Simulated scan of single mutants.
Amino acid sequence: MSHVSGYEGTTAGDGGGKYFPPPPDLVSNHGGQPPPALRDWNIPAISEDEAKEAFIQYAASKCCYSQNPAREMLFEDLQSFNTYRYRLETFTESRSTAWKSEPYNGEGVDSYLCGVPPLPWDIRMEIPDMFRDHIKRTKVPHTSSVKGCQTCGCSGRRPCSECHGLSRKECWVCNGRGVRLSDKKCTTCSGTGSSICNSCSGLGTKACPDCKGRGQLLSFIELQVEWQNNIFEYLVDQRTGFPTELFKEVNGKKLFVNEEYMVHPVISFPQSDINKASRNAVEQHMTQFGSTTRILRQRQTIELIFLTKVEYEWHGKSYSYFVYGNEHNVYAEDYPKKCCCTII
Rank of each mutant, 00 (worst) to 15 (best):
S195W: 11
L88V: 10
I231L: 08
S268F: 00
K136M: 14
N280Q: 14
P24M: 09
V257R: 09
C171T: 07
R157H: 13
G252C: 08
S28T: 00
L304N: 01
T143P: 11
R132K: 07
D122Y: 10
G290Q: 03
Q300R: 07
Q67P: 13
G108F: 14
C211T: 11
Y234D: 14
C341G: 07
S47Y: 00
I305M: 12
E313L: 01
V116M: 09
P243N: 03
A59T: 06
I267L: 12
H285R: 07
E313K: 02
L74M: 03
T301F: 15
Y321G: 09
Y86K: 00
D183Y: 10
S318H: 05
T301D: 14
V4Q: 03
C340D: 12
F322W: 10
V236P: 11
A98T: 04
H30D: 14
E126A: 15
P265F: 06
K248A: 15
M73F: 02
R180V: 02
S167Y: 11
N329W: 10
F322K: 01
V257T: 01
T92Y: 03
M1R: 07
N105K: 00
N42H: 13
G325V: 11
N105P: 12
K52N: 13
G252A: 11
R279F: 05
P120Y: 10
Y319Q: 02
E170M: 12
R239I: 02
H328D: 15
R168C: 07
N258M: 08
Q67G: 11
Q271S: 15
T308K: 00
E233Y: 02
G241M: 01
V266P: 09
T11P: 09
S268Q: 06
P36H: 01
F55A: 08
G241N: 02
N326R: 03
Y112W: 06
D110Y: 06
L223E: 05
T205G: 14
C163N: 02
G178K: 04
A37S: 15
G290L: 04
L304I: 08
A70N: 02
V116E: 15
C63M: 13
S145E: 14
E126P: 07
K254Y: 11
Q298F: 04
S94Y: 01
C197I: 10
S94C: 04
K100H: 09
P36D: 14
P117N: 09
P36A: 03
S190Q: 09
E333G: 14
V330F: 05
L217H: 00
L304P: 06
V4A: 02
K253R: 14
N329R: 15
V179M: 06
Q79C: 15
E259M: 13
N230Y: 09
T187P: 11
D237F: 13
V263A: 10
Q228P: 00
G13I: 00
I295R: 05
E107R: 04
V282T: 07
L307Y: 02
E333W: 09
F220V: 04
K184Q: 13
C208L: 08
L74R: 02
F75K: 12
K317F: 08
D210G: 13
H30W: 08
W41S: 09
L235R: 07
K18H: 04
K62M: 12
L38C: 06
S155W: 00
A70Q: 08
I127Q: 08
M1N: 15
I221C: 01
E76W: 10
D14M: 13
K206E: 08
P24Y: 13
M286A: 13
S94E: 11
V225A: 03
Q271H: 15
S61L: 06
S194M: 13
G106D: 03
I123R: 05
I135K: 01
W172T: 03
